[in-house]
């Protein structure tokens, strides 16, 4: 579903992403780990077409992202670290608007069911977003992905700053979506969640993917050791 082929991004002399090769299949939850500045966001932004690659290509569902960005938009959903919505609109109205911008029109009861599916408590649906907590806003992001029937989720540290319960709920949502064959690429600093939720893990360092493994192959403490090892070299 998601392919990075020799994907490279240079900012002047700074090699932000160095020859990345990556394959993510439907149902996979691929977690990108790595220190600040390792190139995780750069990778995600290349798949989002927010930036253009210096060389190589990002491919989603056989379509090269920079060649046909409009076609890509139909497939993807993006949740950043801090999903900002329109404060003066309710969660329901925000959902309706953003889904509308994807060219989809739903009845109110359908929209409500997406919010329920994303785990937002029903008292909040009609409240203005300015009264929402961060966790509630991230749930609107998940509801947007569900409503859009996205085949690919691109998540940039979506759970950072969430409390453990909210973080856990978010992971469960991801698992449910992966059962529906959604392919997920998620940047995170949370080793524990990556092991719990992810199917695959990639460790990045200075723009390079230095380690790839399946979460089934490793336990929590070994993962931590491996990660720190890479960071200390």
């Amino acid at each position: 579903m998601l392919h990075a082929v020799n994907l490279t991004k240079k900012y002047q002399e700074n090699l932000a992403l160095d020859n990345l090769n990556l394959v993510i299949e439907p149902g996979d939850i691929y977690c990108l780990l790595g220190a600040n500045g390792a190139g995780k966001s750069t990778t995600i932004n290349l798949f989002l077409n927010f930036i253009a690659p210096t060389s190589g290509k990002a491919v989603i569902d056989q379509i090269e992202v920079s060649k046909d960005p409009q076609a890509i938009k139909k497939l993807i959903a993006y949740i950043p670290e801090n999903l900002v919505l329109y404060n003066e609109l309710s969660g329901l109205e925000n959902l309706e608007y953003f889904v509308g911008l994807a060219g989809m029109k739903y009845q109110q009861d359908e929209l409500v069911s997406f919010l329920q599916e994303a785990g937002l408590q029903s008292e909040a649906f009609k409240k203005r977003v300015k009264t929402y907590s961060k966790g509630m806003r991230q749930k609107i992001g998940v509801a947007m992905a569900i409503a859009k029937r996205a085949k690919v989720l691109l998540l940039d540290e979506p759970t950072s700053g969430l409390d453990p319960k909210a973080s856990n709920e978010f992971s469960e949502l991801l698992l449910r979506l992966s059962q529906q064959n959604v392919a997920t690429l998620m940047a995170t600093h949370d080793l524990f969640r990556a092991k719990e939720t992810g199917t695959d893990i990639g460790i990045m360092k200075s723009g390079k993917l230095v380690e790839q493994l399946s979460t089934e192959e490793i336990n929590h403490s070994d993962l931590e050791k491996l990660y720190l090892n890479h960071m200390n070299n």
């Binding site: 989002l48 993807i76 993006y78 900002v84 953003f98 911008l101 994807a102």
Partner: peptide, 18 residues
């Protein structure tokens, strides 16, 4: 400034329409 434009840009609407 808020970052909503980034979300909008992943939705499918064209800049002209927006």
């Amino acid at each position: 400034e808020q970052g909503t434009l980034r979300i909008i840009k992943t939705q499918g609407i064209s800049n002209q329409q927006l």
